[in-house]
């Protein structure tokens, strides 16, 4: 490790010997101005961009989504779903007839590894919010919804509320004051895993989920 310490001091001293005049944010020019959007515009842009990269988006009311999701997965031949019983997603799904076998996230998420790689066909997670500008879901994985849950199963489903769609990533970082509270892992997900590394031909399901299913819950009058 002493080499690293020596390297550190050599690198920093070489950098410090350069003539620089430190710039501040006030010196920045240019802008990344983007249009403001109404709630309806945000929803329609998000849905359009998500569908453009093969994300399956289902619009539903808060009442409808558990059954709609169950039907969607059943139609795909999926009979079990990884979902946390401690989140709204798991609680709501247990209320309806158990057509799907619900697999709960164990207290030690690491113990899920082998099942995730061998047998779990699908997962359902919540998300923190959506981003209209880029058609993106924002996830902050935690103890109840670990990182691998949105990555390893071939089908990843996400519950997104219409009122949680922000306009841009810049807005979210600023409004939610991310800089003061970054989690272990913050994720932006904008579609199923994909690659164009073979002859520029787009193929889905590279290393992550082959399918991304979004249950977009619309806000109802009077709520």
């Amino acid at each position: 490790m002493s080499t690293s310490i020596q390297a550190r001091s050599n690198i920093l001293s070489r950098l410090r010997s350069a003539q620089t005049s430190p710039l501040t944010v006030a010196d920045d020019i240019g802008s990344a101005q983007l249009p403001e959007r109404s709630r309806a515009e945000k929803v329609s842009r998000l849905v359009e961009l998500m569908r453009a990269v093969k994300t399956e988006v289902h619009l539903a009311t808060d009442e409808q989504w558990p059954q709609l999701l169950t039907d969607t997965l059943t139609a795909k031949g999926i009979t079990s779903l990884l979902v946390s019983s401690r989140k709204e997603t798991g609680k709501r799904l247990t209320e309806i007839e158990d057509e799907l076998e619900l697999i709960d996230v164990p207290d030690n998420p690491l113990s899920l590894k082998d099942d995730l790689f061998s047998s779990i066909p699908a997962s359902l997670t919540t998300c923190r919010c959506g981003i209209a500008e880029t058609g993106t879901l924002v996830l902050w994985p935690d103890h109840d919804e670990p990182r691998a849950m949105s990555l390893v199963p071939p089908v990843h489903c996400v519950l997104l509320k219409e009122q949680d769609i922000a306009n841009t990533l810049a807005d979210i970082i600023r409004v939610e004051e991310w800089a003061g509270q970054m989690p272990t892992n913050a994720l932006l997900i904008s579609g199923p895993s994909k690659t164009a590394d073979i002859a520029r031909i787009l193929a889905y399901g590279a290393h992550g989920p082959r399918e991304l299913v979004v249950m977009l819950v619309q806000e109802q009058e009077g709520q």
């Binding site: 030690n108 058609g135 990182r147 272990t184 913050a186 994720l187 932006l188 895993s193 992550g208």
Partner: peptide, 18 residues
């Protein structure tokens, strides 16, 4: 407009996380 994943890592796993 964005890649499928933007992965922001700020620490190793904390207690109870993966």
């Amino acid at each position: 407009p964005i890649t499928t994943y933007v992965n922001m890592i700020s620490s190793p796993r904390k207690e109870g996380e993966d």
